[in-house]
C-alpha cells in the first residue's frame, strides 16, 4: 500500500475501463482534495459516467488504481464503496418509486430494533424522525413523507435522493447531473444543498452539462473527452470559452461566446 497525502481524499492512477474494444475510460489520473468541490464536464460519451461507475463500485475497472482516504481500495460492489464513505446520487435518481421517503433514505441501511439478519424488525419511528431531520436541512417541503415516491415532484424526488447521501456520515458525495430534470426553483433548492455541503466541508464530485451552474458551485473543473481526461482548470481563473474548447477539442476564437451555455 502506498502512502499518499492525507489531504487528498480521492486519487486515481491510470484508471481504465474497456467494454470489448471500446475504451470508455482511458488512463484517467485524477485527484480530489478534502473539502474540495469539483465538476466533471464533457460531451456525451466522454467517459464521465463511466469514471463515476468505477469509483463507486458499480463496475470494476479494467485496470488502474484508486486511492480513497489514504488507502488503496478495490471496490467490488456499491456497498463496498458505501461502507468506505462514498455516497452517490445517480442520474436516474435510483429511488424505489413504490416506497415512502424514509424507506428510500434508509434503503440498504435500515434502522432496526435488534439484529436478526434479514428478518430484523425495522425501527420505523427512528427512520421517520431522522428523515424529517435530514430533509429539513435541504429546505424542501414534503407534506407527507409516508407516501410513495411516485406521488412526488422531480424536485422532491431529487432532494430525497440527495438527502440520502448527505444524511449519512459520508466522506465523499458524487452527483450525476443533479439538476438535469428539474425546474428553475427546484434547481435552486438543489444548488443550496450543494452549497451547504461545501460549508460542512464534505467533498463533492458533480457531473453537469450546465456551465453556469458549474462556475457558480465548484472550485475546479475536470474536462473529459473521448474517454480521456484532457484538462483540469480552476473555476476562478478560467472562463467558459476555455472550458468549451477543452470539451470540444476545438480552439475557439477569442471573444466568441459558447453557444450552448
Amino acid at each position: 500500500m502506498k502512502e499518499i497525502d492525507k489531504k487528498i481524499i480521492l486519487k486515481t492512477e491510470g484508471l481504465s475501463k474497456h467494454y470489448g474494444g471500446v475504451k470508455a475510460l482511458d488512463n484517467a489520473d485524477f485527484t480530489l482534495q478534502n473539502g474540495e468541490h469539483i465538476a466533471i464536464v464533457g460531451d456525451n460519451g466522454a467517459g464521465k459516467s463511466t469514471f463515476i461507475r468505477q469509483i463507486t463500485g458499480v463496475e470494476i475497472p479494467t485496470s488502474g488504481k484508486i486511492y480513497f482516504d489514504g488507502n488503496l481500495v478495490n471496490f467490488k460492489t456499491p456497498s463496498d464503496a458505501k461502507n468506505a464513505g462514498i455516497e452517490a446520487v445517480y442520474q436516474n435518481l435510483a429511488l424505489a418509486d413504490d416506497l415512502d421517503v424514509p424507506s428510500n433514505i434508509f434503503l440498504g441501511q435500515e434502522e432496526t430494533y435488534f439484529n436478526l439478519g434479514p428478518f430484523s424488525f425495522l425501527n420505523a419511528k427512528k427512520m421517520y424522525d431522522k428523515s424529517i431531520e435530514v430533509l429539513s436541512k435541504t429546505g424542501i417541503k414534503i407534506p407527507d413523507i409516508n407516501i410513495a415516491m411516485s406521488n412526488m415532484s422531480g424536485g422532491q424526488r431529487q432532494c430525497v435522493a440527495i438527502s440520502r447521501s448527505a444524511g449519512f456520515a459520508s466522506k465523499l458525495i458524487i452527483m450525476d447531473e443533479p439538476t438535469a430534470a428539474l425546474g428553475v426553483q427546484e434547481t435552486e433548492q438543489v444548488e443550496n444543498i450543494i452549497k451547504n455541503l461545501k460549508d460542512r466541508g464534505i467533498p463533492l464530485i458533480m457531473i453537469s452539462h450546465n456551465l453556469r451552474q458549474v462556475f457558480d458551485l465548484v472550485d475546479k473543473i475536470w474536462v473529459f473527452r473521448q474517454g480521456k481526461i484532457v484538462g483540469s482548470v480552476d473555476a476562478s481563473t478560467t472562463n467558459s470559452n476555455e472550458v468549451v474548447s477543452l470539451i470540444t477539442g476545438i480552439q475557439q476564437k477569442v471573444g466568441e461566446e459558447a453557444s450552448f451555455i
Binding site: 458499480v58 460492489t77 456499491p78 452517490a88 436516474n92 435518481l93 435510483a94 429511488l95 416506497l99 440498504g108
Partner: peptide, 13 residues
Amino acid sequence: AIGSNEEAARVAG
C-alpha cells in the same frame, strides 16, 4: 425495493 427498482436496490447496497 427490488420489485420497485432493482437498480436502486443494488446501488443502495
